[in-house]
Amino acid sequence: MPSKKLAFINGRPQLVDANARVRSEADRQYNRVRNEQQSDYLKFYHSNEWKQLRDQILIRDNSLCQRCGLQASLVDHIVPSEDDWEDRTNADNLQALCRDCHYWKTRRETTKRKKGQHRAMKITVIVGYPASGKSTYVKRHQGQHDLVYDYDHIMTALTGLPLHQGNIDANDYVQLIYELILRKLKAEQSFDHVWLVMTYPDEKLESLLASRDVEHILIDTDRDTCMQRLSKQGRDVSQLIKAMNKLDEMKSENKFAKFKKIKN
């Protein structure tokens, strides 16, 4: 027999399924206040502009929930429109969600808003050649309430392979984790410090994290030293040459002018 819980429906106590969501009087009161005080907000969500944008996002996201992967039924603002009204039509701030994921996301946002949880989160983008010492640098500086995205370490966690041994089939999943992290970073400030470790910078970070406190660091270990380290580690250097050449190309184009250069 499925578990039950007590809920008040139309002022009367009733037993309902434990996972059932029942609208409370507080919900109804919230909607009444919104109808009276946020008419522009409601008009937008009934406008043709929003309906067309919603359809575009569902097509872009293949009608799949961007959190759980199940069938999506609505389009959500990553940064809530009530927090950033000017960004309400920005496609990069929209995602397809299923109703359950949208419910729990909204609930977390409401809880944080009520508690006033807002960390002065700093984001550091760490780039450099393979074996330049990026991960070592992060380990020396990260704190207890930090988040670290490191492609190699996530690949190892997903596949069980030794560090630096990739699985091409798992690559899409590692990239998906990266994209979800960026969406969360745009919407929330849950950590003291976020470290994004990569060989060369992702150009789309500039627009996605424009409103965040972002530091850029280039671990400027010379290429020959990195090649020697890679050889000692027994890594397939031929698979990394393309990435190293890309970094060299960006250096020649002065793409690292705002990066703090650190020898390691």
Rank of each mutant, 00 (worst) to 15 (best):
K261P: 01
M250T: 01
Y149I: 08
I219Y: 07
Q37T: 15
K5S: 09
I219A: 06
D150M: 12
R183Y: 00
C68S: 06
Y41H: 11
A157C: 06
T159L: 09
S24D: 02
P201L: 04
Q228E: 14
Y149N: 04
L247F: 11
Y103N: 06
L209F: 05
N254F: 08
T136S: 12
A26D: 05
Q37S: 15
T225C: 04
R99P: 00
N264R: 08
I59K: 10
V194M: 11
P130M: 08
N245C: 08
D40P: 00
W195M: 09
D83G: 05
F259N: 06
K134V: 03
V194T: 09
G166N: 08
Q29C: 04
K5Y: 09
I219P: 03
K186P: 00
K232L: 13
K51A: 05
K184W: 04
K232R: 13
L53C: 05
R99C: 02
N90P: 04
G160L: 06
Q144P: 01
N62Q: 12
N171E: 15
L163N: 10
R67T: 07
H46Q: 14
V138K: 08
Q117I: 13
N48A: 15
I123F: 02
I262T: 12
A18G: 05
N48H: 14
E82K: 14
L208T: 05
H141P: 00
H102I: 02
M244T: 07
E179C: 01
S231Q: 14
Y137F: 15
S238C: 00
G160Q: 05
L240D: 09
E215S: 13
D169I: 07
E25C: 00
C98K: 09
A20C: 10
T89K: 13
L94S: 02
I219Q: 05
H102G: 01
D84S: 11
L15N: 13
Q66V: 02
I59M: 03
R229E: 02
Q239M: 10
D152Y: 13
S207R: 14
F8P: 01
E215V: 02
A210G: 01
T221Y: 07
Q14R: 10
D236R: 09
V214R: 04
H118I: 05
D152M: 14
F191M: 12
Y30N: 01
D224Q: 08
G234N: 11
K134P: 03
V125A: 08
M155F: 03
R113A: 15
Y178R: 13
V214D: 02
D192I: 02
D146K: 10
E249Q: 11
T106R: 12
G133T: 07
D236H: 07
Q142C: 10
V127C: 15
D76I: 03
L70S: 12
A120F: 04
R235I: 12
Q165I: 10
S238H: 04
E109P: 00
E188I: 02
Q52T: 11
R12H: 12
H141C: 06
D220F: 03
D100M: 11
P2D: 11
E206W: 05
L209A: 06
A243E: 13
D202Y: 08
G116R: 06
G116V: 04
D152A: 15
I9F: 03
D92P: 00
T106V: 05
K261F: 06
K261G: 00
D213T: 08
C65L: 06
R60Y: 00
D87S: 15
